[in-house]
Amino acid sequence: MAAPEPRTYIDVHIVQTVPPANLNRDDQGNPKEAYFGGVRRSRVSSQAWKRATRTHFSERLPEQDLATRTRRIGKALAGRIAVMTGLDDEAANRLAGALLAPLKISAGKKEGDSAYLFFYGRRQIDAVAALIKDKAAELVALDDEELAAEIKQLPVQEKFSTGHPMDVALFGRMVADIPALNVDAATQVAHALSTHAVELEFDYFTAVDDEQKKGEETGAGMIGTIGFNSATLYRYATVGLHQLVHNLTDEEAAVTAVEEFLTSFARSIPSGYANSFAHRTLPSLVAVTVRSDQPVNLVSAFEEPVTGSAGIAAASAARLAYEHARAVSAWGDAPAFTALCHTFPTPGDTAELLEHTFGTAVSFPHLLKGVRAHLTDTLKQAAR
């Protein structure tokens, strides 16, 4: 029997305080919540923070190296064909439809749309368009049956199944109609939860009509309310390096993808009502643990809600450190590597406890360098 494939999980634990905000709204327009430990907590869905992370990628990395998610894949492919070949829109749309037909993607309600969002790399769509670049004029001249026969010989599905960009490799792709196009996600992201109980509050606001005649008209031009809360959040995500290497087929690219994910996950924040609340903050704590057994979410540290009128972030960080130490002691599963970045005063009780648990605190850039060095060494040792 073959030996099991070595596994490496990169767990990231974040404590972040957010002021009054509505980061991620529910169907009533209020901040999402959840009951945990018997009390109501602020919640930010994993989807919201994954979207924020992907958006942060696009602010730092070349667009062509990333993916996009859309129903309008036919329109996107037709656009690339038109640019590459000089064909008019009608001919480009016909060729795009023929190229996508063998995939049997379910059609949406609008003409040219797919029934669901399709997550693909921009370089992948270029690779599909390039399949017909040099013979586009000849293909356009064929009737539908002849065109379908010619397209059937082209490796369209292969182009979407290889050369995945970093974000598809990290977050995965599911295509219900075509299992061969599915990509297992290398990353799992938990819903962020407040470490303490919260109460929903409402901001009653008015807007003044600037053209209202002074002294002749009174009252507001508009009134409304926005739900909000404020919270210290525990955020958790894990990346399976082994799955990432499999998805990217390149070890160095996989290590770089982990570094980019850690950067964007730590620095991003959902943008709901950002103009109304200006809620963007940076974490008070980022702790990374690299494990070979399994991912470990430490949210159990906050089953009993943190209380107190001051120092909730520090108390939450201390709870996290204690929970990690208890888990290691009880299960005997010490991480292979830990890294820590925090903003708590040093010297200080919280800082000393964190560093006793996770190691010496460093700046975030140095944390990234340390993680990269460890993962690179881990992959080298596995290859021996």
Rank of each mutant, 00 (worst) to 15 (best):
V288H: 06
R280K: 11
A101G: 01
D27M: 10
A192H: 00
S194E: 08
A383L: 05
K109P: 06
F358M: 02
F265G: 02
F302E: 01
E304I: 10
A278D: 10
E199Q: 13
L77A: 09
S363Y: 06
Y9T: 06
F364V: 02
A21Y: 00
L367F: 09
Y273V: 00
I132N: 03
A383F: 02
Q47P: 02
Y322S: 11
F265H: 00
S292C: 06
A237F: 03
G108H: 07
D89E: 15
K135M: 05
V175K: 01
F57K: 04
A318V: 14
L282R: 09
T350M: 09
T376F: 03
T307E: 06
S45E: 09
G172P: 14
K133R: 14
V255W: 12
F118S: 04
T346C: 06
V290R: 05
S45N: 04
T225V: 12
A67M: 04
A254I: 07
P20T: 02
V296H: 11
K213A: 10
R94K: 11
I226N: 12
S300V: 06
V290S: 11
R40S: 04
L285W: 05
N229D: 14
K110F: 05
A310K: 07
A274K: 11
T338I: 09
F202V: 00
L87K: 05
G224W: 08
K369W: 05
T238W: 14
G74T: 15
I73V: 14
I269M: 15
A176M: 05
V18S: 01
S264Y: 06
F202K: 08
C341L: 02
E59K: 10
R51P: 04
G112F: 04
S276M: 11
K109R: 15
K152V: 11
K75H: 06
N22M: 04
D210Q: 00
A127E: 14
K75P: 00
H164S: 03
A169Q: 13
R123S: 07
A141Q: 10
A52V: 12
T218K: 07
A149D: 11
F277V: 04
E33P: 01
E146K: 14
T289P: 06
T249L: 15
A336Y: 01
G370L: 03
A92E: 03
R25L: 13
T238G: 03
E260R: 15
R72Q: 06
A383S: 13
A287T: 03
